[in-house]
Structures are given as C-alpha cells and as structure tokens.
C-alpha cells in the first residue's frame, strides 16, 4: 500500500517488524478473551461451561459483557 510505504519512509526507525506468528498469537488472545468473557456452552459441555461461567461471573459483570 502506498500509504504504509510513505509512512515508513518518513520515519523508518520507529517501525517494528511484526512476524507472522504474532497474528496467530493475537488470534489466540482474542479467543482467550472470548473464552473467559462469553463462553457459555458453545464449545464446552454444559456443566463445564456452567462452572466457567460461575468462576468468571464477577469479572464478566465488571467487564460489562452481557451476562444472563
């Protein structure tokens, strides 16, 4: 992209090389966020999801994610 190229041309010293695995790590972190904040049985068995829900309950409320 021309915009990215021109931006890095202006200040090449500030750019950081982001390896490909970093995006996999980002996807994993997003998944982890989903897991602790939203998982209610879509991936886990019902008792496991219920256990997870109860353990993360207070933080889910505090984080403001919709909860029961």
């Amino acid at each position: 992209m021309t915009t990215a190229a021109s931006a890095s041309a202006v200040s090449p010293s500030t750019s950081v090389r982001v390896p490909v695995w970093a995006w996999a790590l980002l996807a994993f972190a997003v998944f982890a966020l989903y897991f602790v904040s939203q998982e209610n049985g879509a991936l886990l068995s019902a008792p496991a999801a219920q256990m997870l829900h109860e353990l993360t309950h207070d933080a889910r409320h505090a984080l403001g994610v919709p909860c029961h």
């Binding site: 790590l25 997003v30 602790v36 993360t56 309950h57 207070d58 933080a59 889910r60 505090a62 984080l63």
Partner: peptide
Amino acid sequence: QVVGGAVTAVLVGVAVGI
C-alpha cells in the same frame, strides 16, 4: 467467585496486553 473474578481479570489483562 470473588477469587475467580480476580483471576479472570488478570487473564483478561494479559490477553489485552498481548
């Protein structure tokens, strides 16, 4: 639940940090 909430907050912090 209170302890679990605190642990969850730390996990969320790490994920957001990454």
